[in-house]
Design a protein around this nucleic acid. Sequence first.
DNA 1: TTGTACGCGTTATCAC
DNA 2: GTGATAACGCGTACAA
Lengths: 336, 336
Amino acid sequence: MTKKNVTYNDIAKYTGFSKTTVSRYFNNPNSVTSENRAIISDALNTLGYRENKVARILASGKTEFIGIIVPNLYLHFYAKMLDTLLSTYEKYGYKFIVFAGNDNKDEERRYLSELLAYKIEGLIMMSHTIPSSELARCGVPVVGIEREDENICSVNTDNYMGAVQATSLLIRGGCDHLIHINSDIDEKTPAYRRIRGFRDTCVSHRKEHDVTLCNFKNSYSEDRAELEQIIDRLEKKYPGRKKGIFTSSDTYANIILNILLRRGKAVPSDYMLIGFDNSPISEEAMIPISTIGQQSDIMADEAMSMLSELMEKGSTPAAPEHRIITPILIRRETTD
Amino acid sequence: MTKKNVTYNDIAKYTGFSKTTVSRYFNNPNSVTSENRAIISDALNTLGYRENKVARILASGKTEFIGIIVPNLYLHFYAKMLDTLLSTYEKYGYKFIVFAGNDNKDEERRYLSELLAYKIEGLIMMSHTIPSSELARCGVPVVGIEREDENICSVNTDNYMGAVQATSLLIRGGCDHLIHINSDIDEKTPAYRRIRGFRDTCVSHRKEHDVTLCNFKNSYSEDRAELEQIIDRLEKKYPGRKKGIFTSSDTYANIILNILLRRGKAVPSDYMLIGFDNSPISEEAMIPISTIGQQSDIMADEAMSMLSELMEKGSTPAAPEHRIITPILIRRETTD
DNA sequence: TTGTACGCGTTATCAC
DNA sequence: GTGATAACGCGTACAA
């Protein structure tokens, strides 16, 4: 945009061919003599041509844009997910316009309409604020990841199974009392199934258990203070019993681990501990923390393959398809 | 794109106005009667008009696109930086097309040319593979963040000052022997100045010191193994001396902390420890780790204000401007 | 194999 | 305040 843009027209004039031939040089090279291809190629170089995909979009109707809205990128899960999604460029060729909507519904609506104005061909939605009923009406294929997905296609971790695996591991480890700590989430979010998986497993094994829902602030000191109180209560209420704690995120598991170690508790003999996400902290903790690993590479790939299918078809499916990815149990030192 | 797109033409026919008036409704509303505005507004709703910015780009020449290439998003620094950059949408209105180039020069070149094809108005470059000499010739304003920046504008942390602060803290803490651990980086990268800052501070205080450059793999187990050996050597070489370790990243500081605690060393009395980045791990570690905090919010804002200035002017400045952001010393329990 | 003519949806420049 | 008309850069029938 600095100087004048070189266009097909310039190349055409310079070479004596028509714009059409220049266009064909790019889109259907075989229909141009190899000699003429060389001539055009030279002209492109000497004139310093730069392709303009914006014009191509207008003519062809294909933008090759996919919109992504993430809640944030300081939580490792979203960062990792976005990283993996961006890497699919090599395979699918779609370009990504990315927004981070910090849990603000109106902002995210603006992001969405901005994306639609740029004629994205598909949307990958990881934020929670806009209900799927609304997303389903936006006119482009949408795939949700780990969010409420009643009316849209989605890719989710098998949260229920993840919780079952985690809880079973604690039971096998000989814990007398099981605790699940989660934030106070909506029943419609996929992560809610972790609570169900925990409860069901405890019940079917006739294990004493608690579910504690907290109002986490995503601030280390505040969340730590809250978890300190929870540990206090547990110590008082169930003294001497071997406890197994399953948290909804590795971050909380790590905070609890730090609290326990500072109090001189033995992990895993007094307390067993398992988190969720396989985020770096789980591996880097003082005692490496067992966790449930979401397979973000597979999830990203499924999301993209699903989305590209939807974009091919053009029509939205009658019933939204939900793909469930089984998580992986990662056993480390807090349970073994 | 699902059905037929509603365009200005449709609105014009429906209302009896011309396309021009419809355009003015959006771009210069005051030049249209409020009654006619109402009529157009109704038509837009009933026909279900959706603006098409791609067409606007072609006509106006302004894409409002900024390209971002990050090396990856699993390192917290990049994720946080991207998060903050994306948030500037509220202030500047630019949309971001994002690529993650995994340290592959040819891939990143393709990303760059793809971005140029979409007529980005500016580029924010956080990857290291493409030399700034090449970036300077790409035809759009470029701002680099924490990378080699000889020929481009940039925003960097004052790495030298950060290292001076960190080293001084260790010295004030009474350490006898100082160690700096870094990866084997190029002298041209901003982070190299951490090494200089460490050395200069040690020399001016006449402190015994070592600089150890490692070949880190970004794998916990491998890096931990390497750091174990380094601690072994230190223990043998300088037994009984109080050691102060300054690492180039919080991740390494945390690994070292874990190693030391497992070996029964006392932190901060036997060893003092300070990292770099103020990443979550520094706060979440068993003993909260002192660190040098890069002010990523300020850096992102400077990068954007700089880039928007460059984009306004249109011309590249004769000499690239380098903005330096002073980092913040964060004192936690590994030094106090 | 190559060229002509038109369309994509908007903005800009004139007129009125 | 409003309307023709020509760009913007490229793709694509259709014709040659």
